[in-house]
């Protein structure tokens, strides 16, 4: 059954038509990876799913319910939809533990002790059990992003959105974040991932979605999209990212960092 469904979504930024009649369905437990050039609407699509951007037309249906951004309490939807950002967006005035328990305690009214207990388990999971008291500025980008993942998971979301989670990282730190994401996918989390990491897409995705100029041009299983792309625009894009100057498909190794601590 589909957990989230998007119907004829249209989004404009002034005159820019950022999303054009986008239709999408993601099943429970599925990992969908969205690829495409910058400016193709990938991030906008993701941000429409938790209404950080409000689409002008079309529907977002979560768990069978049409979400009306004017009537419905979006905070309730957002409790169920975690998001990880390109620039981490950790709260710099709070330490790692406080970052993670903030929303469970303040929003869900989880008792503090229970929230701390869960936060410690999550930190262990992302390999940062020893960073409980650290402040974000004392962590590397990769560590910050893993804390951000733990922070989102602390709300027990049913869907996780990743908006270019490794794009702001130094190359040597990308692997540790992807390893956590891969582990999460293995646990059955429903994930929609916008990324340029083609290796991750090929290995972890159940489905790859290629976007260009605000439209979904092609989607399918990774093997099919990567090996036998049907559309010429997909082929052009893939040949540029896979054989161009950038790192190619096997640019990361599932490092042990995330599970070592």
């Amino acid at each position: 059954m589909s957990l989230v469904k998007v119907r004829n979504l249209n989004k404009w930024f002034g005159r820019l038509h950022a999303l054009k009649d986008v239709n999408l369905e993601v099943r429970e437990g599925e990992v969908a990876v969205v690829i495409g050039a910058s400016g193709s609407g990938k991030s906008t699509l993701l941000r429409c799913l938790n209404f950080l951007e409000v689409p002008e037309q079309g529907q977002v249906i979560f768990d069978g319910k049409v979400i009306d951004p004017r009537r419905d309490d979006l905070n309730l939807l957002r409790r169920e939809v975690g998001m990880v950002f390109q620039h981490f967006n950790l709260f710099p005035h709070m330490n790692v533990l406080e970052n993670i328990i903030e929303a469970p305690v303040m929003v869900k009214k989880v008792p503090r002790e229970k929230a701390i207990e869960e936060a410690l388990a999550l930190l262990h999971k992302v390999g940062l059990a020893d960073k409980v008291d650290a402040y974000p500025c004392q962590l590397s980008g990769g560590q910050q992003q893993r804390v951000a993942i733990a922070r989102a998971l602390a709300m027990h979301p049913r869907l996780m959105l990743f908006d270019e989670p490794t794009s702001a990282l130094d190359p040597e730190l990308v692997g540790e974040v992807l390893a956590v994401m891969k582990q999460l996918a293995g646990e059955g989390m429903t994930m929609i991932v916008v990324t340029h990491e083609m290796g991750f897409a090929r290995e972890v995705a159940d489905r790859v979605i290629f976007m260009d100029e605000g439209r979904i041009v092609e989607e399918g299983e990774p093997a099919q999209v990567f090996s036998r792309p049907q559309k010429s625009r997909t082929r052009d894009f893939l040949s540029r990212v896979l054989w161009g100057s950038g790192p190619a498909q096997d640019c990361w190794t599932p490092a042990a960092t995330a599970t070592s601590a």
Partner: peptide
């Protein structure tokens, strides 16, 4: 991004303003 992160966690505008 601070407000967006707070809102994405389900915090209301007022709560995000006050806490974050």
């Amino acid at each position: 991004g601070q407000m967006e992160a707070a809102r994405s966690l389900g915090m209301s505008y007022g709560l995000a303003m006050r806490r974050i």
